[in-house]
Nucleic acid binder design. Structure first.
Lengths: 226, 226
DNA sequence: CCAGAATGCGAGCGACCGCTCGTGTTTGTC
DNA sequence: GACAAACACGAGCGGTCGCTCGCATTCTGG
């Protein structure tokens, strides 16, 4: 785990040889600031979020914030990095086992449930990934995660459709991810039972979309056949 | 058609009794400014777009811009209004005829094609509706269009599913719209044959999602049955 | 043809934002 | 306890942005 946050004060000479010795207090402040940033980013979006507001939310002064982060972008990058790390663990569990014996409905349902739980626990994730107002560097992180997710889905699909052209596989993976994001947005916009309803609909969409592709390759729940 | 744009100079006393007599030159400038705003909004988004940039794009001074629009928000509102007007005409054609004899695939395909053509002709539309960075008033217009679209889809669905609970109908309509937006985003991100491929996949998603709901109520293309 | 309205200009005002800097406080080390 | 490094503060700098104002120019009705 890359615990070394890029320094704020070291104005650009050394980067790797002087990792800026941190005290326990500093690490706590960093976590505190990232949590505050997550809150502000979630409510106002990245561009509209002011560093002063983040500092205020964290209960520190603007100067203190810049003790630990060289600029506003670095805050989002570090936050995105930690999120991606946790995400990798989550969807590692969610998408890794391509057990070809489980019914499609179960596989899709389990994957959606895991991803959805992650997005509920980390609302910033959606805000950072979905926002079209995000400048330069963060896009790289975004693209990295996107590509990573996509290749996972693609791999999963290729094990179900070994005889499909790669281009179709990529397109199908993109569709799945896009459909998930759409369903996620709808589900997050509702609460309680209604939310669960949208999650179920999302699963229906994905299952029905993929079912004709995998054909009879995967098992189907008994009683649903013609 | 509401041709009266809210005045810029009349600093807030009269609004309806003094519609600010316009010359032909003024109307031309307004159209010119809206076109420039559409360009800038499309490329940079609403919040990042500066009024000076819009004026520069239109080839006029900032002061001239504020002769016709009281503030930046009014530009987006007027633009959104005109877009909504044109949209209503388009999807009036796209969704109005609920001919219960046409196959589901044809109906969905035609609707998607019309909407997609509209979004290709007016890229601003997607930028204004999809951006999470849009302040206050515009959201009202957005919600109005959203609700309008939704009730149309809902009505269309209810004619196919007369015995479904209203709550399910609303949810299904929301899903359709969300799925369309997701597919639109993917299609717009590609070009040429790849774009067409995504459009086709979007149609597949919608048809397969709705097919089990409408059951055998609508006709199916010959040769696709079991 | 001319008075007044509509249109056009662009320097610049006030507000805010990202970020800095000088200074003061806390913490770890000997 | 002394010294340095890390931490904390907050006024404020430079810059941008939305928007204004005074004034010049063009159109239009009588």
């Amino acid at each position: 785990m890359p615990d070394n946050v890029p320094d704020g004060r070291g104005s650009g000479s050394q980067e790797k040889d002087q990792p800026r010795r941190r005290q326990a207090r500093g690490e706590r402040r960093i976590a505190q600031l990232l949590e505050a940033a997550a809150t502000v980013f979630t409510t106002t979006g990245y561009t509209a979020a002011s560093t002063n507001a983040i500092a205020r939310e964290a209960g520190v002064s603007p100067g203190t914030l810049y003790q630990f982060f060289p600029n506003k972008e670095a805050i989002a990058i570090e936050l995105g990095g930690r999120l991606m790390h946790e995400m990798r663990e989550t969807y590692g569990e969610a998408l890794a086992p391509v057990d070809p014996a489980t019914p499609l409905e179960e596989a899709v349902g389990a994957a959606v449930d895991r991803f959805f739980a992650f997005n509920c626990e980390h609302p910033v994730f959606f805000a950072l990934m979905h926002g079209p107002d995000i400048p330069g560097r963060i896009t790289e992180e975004h693209d990295a995660l996107h590509a990573s997710l996509l290749s996972r889905i693609e791999g999963l699909l290729s094990s179900l459709l070994p005889d499909a052209p790669p281009a179709d596989l990529t397109r199908t993976a993109n569709m799945c991810l896009g459909l998930y994001k759409a369903g996620l947005e709808l589900a997050l916009a509702h609460e309680g039972a209604e939310r669960d309803g949208y999650v179920q609909e999302l699963k229906n969409v994905l299952v029905r979309y993929l079912e004709p592709l995998v054909g009879g390759r995967l098992g189907r729940a008994p009683g649903t056949g013609p």
